[in-house]
């Protein structure tokens, strides 16, 4: 190894001094609707530091030693939970995981009681996933403990939104003028909603593409009322994907067919599956992202999912770095 590593510094960072944390003002992480561009940039900068730790043989730093982080998942999830727990462990925190779907709820314990129990156990941070929109807000309102929303109903999934944008930035650099197409079950997607909030300060265009029955009735008015002027709706995928830089199909739950929101899987695949032919309409360097877990052969075909444009695995790796950054920012200090 040559010693002339010198040119990587300060070139990489210019003469930038460490960014200030003064803009950071979140006790909880509930959604991206209250994140400024500066705060998102801060998360990304810290995540860059975490990526280096993830590349080490010994992936462990003592930053959150003595802190206890609980994951409380009221909904089955493997990847998000594993991602948060690894993030916590890599930072040296102790983790406890409550499989809430099985334990207290079955006994008829209310959410607020379960949460108060965790608080009484002196847990520092609770990471909560819940099938009901807004459940983490109930926790944040009534508890002193810090809360991270790991997905609530159809409402928000802030860490996913951040890791998605982080992945886009790492791959594409500046996102100005880029075009992101989110395809599928927008109605029920917390990932889509958090991406809408998260991208609003990036000068990026977002096109939501879905059958009319899978777009919430009030979506257009929401985007108008809340300054999400970068968002538009297009029902035809071939039109939507034209010139796209980022293509993000969403998981289509099989229940959507049972409830009649789509007439058949065959029709959905014909109209909305992201495959090579459709992708050829996107920009030549377009990237593919998916929040997982995928339904291969439904919203995305195998070749696209595992093709060279796919960043789906990078999303998973970046997810750990983003969650480490969030835990560092949240679990570290007593911000009050």
């Amino acid at each position: 190894m040559s010693m002339h590593e010198t040119k990587s510094w300060p070139a990489g960072q210019g003469t930038m001094l460490p960014a200030s944390m003064e803009s950071w003002n979140h006790k909880h992480i509930l959604d991206l609707d209250d994140f400024s561009r500066e705060e998102i940039d801060l998360v990304f900068e810290i995540a860059d530091g975490m990526v280096e730790i993830l590349a080490r043989d010994v992936k462990k730093v003592p930053t959150l030693r003595g802190k206890t982080i609980a994951t409380m998942f009221f909904e089955p999830s493997t990847r998000t939970r594993a991602s948060f727990e690894l993030a916590a462990k890599y930072l040296g925190a102790d983790t406890v995981s409550l499989d809430a779907a099985k334990s207290s709820v079955a006994k008829g314990e209310s959410l607020i009681d379960s949460l108060r129990t965790l608080q009484a156990l002196q847990v520092d941070t609770i990471i909560i996933r819940h099938p009901c929109s807004g459940a983490p807000y109930l926790a944040a309102k009534h508890l002193e403990t810090k809360i991270i929303n790991a997905g609530d109903g159809c409402h928000a999934h802030p860490s996913q939104g951040l890791l998605d944008i982080y992945t886009m930035r790492k791959q594409l650099g500046d996102l100005s003028g880029r075009k992101l197409v989110i395809i599928g079950d927008i109605m029920h997607s917390r990932v889509a909603r958090s991406n809408l909030w998260g991208t609003r300060n990036f000068d990026i265009k977002v096109i939501l593409c879905a059958p009319p029955a899978l777009i919430p009735y009030g979506l257009k008015q929401w985007t108008e009322n809340c300054g999400l002027h970068h968002v538009s709706i297009e029902h035809d995928l071939d039109t939507a994907i034209e010139g796209a830089d980022i293509v993000m199909p969403l998981r289509l739950q099989k229940e959507r067919q049972q409830s009649g929101l789509i007439s058949s899987m065959r029709e959905y695949i014909r109209l909305y599956q992201v495959n090579d032919a459709r992708l050829s309409r996107a920009k030549p360097g377009a990237i593919i992202m998916h929040p997982g877990p995928m339904n291969e052969g439904i919203e995305i075909n195998h070749d696209v999912a595992y093709g060279k444009r796919s960043l789906i695995e990078q999303q998973v790796t970046n997810g750990v770095a983003i969650r480490m950054a969030l835990l560092y920012l949240i679990a570290g200090g007593k911000i009050r």
Binding site: S133, G134, D152, G153, C154, H155, A156, H188, R190, R193, P216, Y217, G218, L219, Q221, W222, E224, N225, C226
Partner: peptide, 15 residues
């Protein structure tokens, strides 16, 4: 109510 607030909050609307 099935309107913009429902869309924003991810709550199912009553039209």
């Amino acid at each position: 109510n099935d309107g913009w607030v429902a869309a924003r909050l991810g709550l199912k609307g009553i039209p």
